[in-house]
């Protein structure tokens, strides 16, 4: 077993490197989301948006925001060695993430009036929500892997970099949605 021989200082040094790596990855990914975001305004301006279920949009946005709260609660709990709270919080985060996915792909996509080939409005809608939902999916998987490993007792209050990474990644996905939600649901009017 190697971890037992890794000193805490080494672990922290390695964690700092990992942290830098994660943030670099997020910076990179932001350019992809930024490109989509800019394309949306380039093509539609501020006058047009797809015709969507406003209630559903508000609901899934609220769900995602709340899930981020639980992700943070779980991470903090782990930092204080409170495993019970950590496990409960991460489970709630995962559940809310799945609800979000079902809301977008299972409901919104299925009930939308048009398919992706109808016009550029709908191409943008499916692509933006699709890329975001894919990230949510990876986030859910990531959270689940960390949750499972935590139950195996791999992390403690001093060594829990994967917990932090999953939470940060989850917040990142959340922040992206904070920009995508108004861009798709709020700004502009549905084409007449």
């Amino acid at each position: 077993m190697t971890t037992e021989t890794v000193t805490l200082t080494d672990y922290q040094r390695k964690t700092n490197t990992n942290r830098l790596g994660l943030w670099l990855f997020i910076a990179s990914d932001l350019f992809m989301f930024g490109g989509l975001f800019i394309s949306r305004f380039y093509l539609l301006g501020t006058g047009v948006r797809p015709e969507l279920n406003q209630f559903l949009g508000l609901a899934i946005t609220a769900i995602l925001l709340v899930s981020s709260f639980f992700a943070n609660r779980g991470e903090t709990a782990m930092a204080y060695g409170d495993r019970k709270t950590f496990e409960r919080s991460f489970l709630i985060t995962i559940a809310l993430g799945i609800v979000f996915l079902v809301g977008v792909v299972g409901v919104e996509w299925q009930t939308a009036p048009y398919g992706p080939g109808e016009s550029v409005v709908w191409s943008l809608f499916y692509t933006m929500t699709g890329f975001h939902a894919f990230h949510v999916l990876t986030g859910v998987i990531f959270l689940f892997i960390v949750f499972r490993n935590a139950r195996k007792g791999l992390y403690n209050e001093e060594r829990h970099w994967p917990v932090e990474a999953a939470a940060v990644y989850w917040h990142f996905i959340d922040v992206v949605w904070i920009f995508f939600y108004p861009a798709l649901y709020l700004i502009g009017l549905p084409p007449a």
Binding site: S39, Y42, L43, G115, P116, G117, E118, S119, V120, V121, S123, L124, Y126, T127
Partner: peptide, 17 residues
């Protein structure tokens, strides 16, 4: 996506550019 799903980002007839 244009080729596979018929999307229209760059197709003027679908409002693209």
């Amino acid at each position: 996506f244009e080729r596979l799903f018929g999307m229209g980002f760059f197709a003027p007839e679908k409002g693209g550019d």
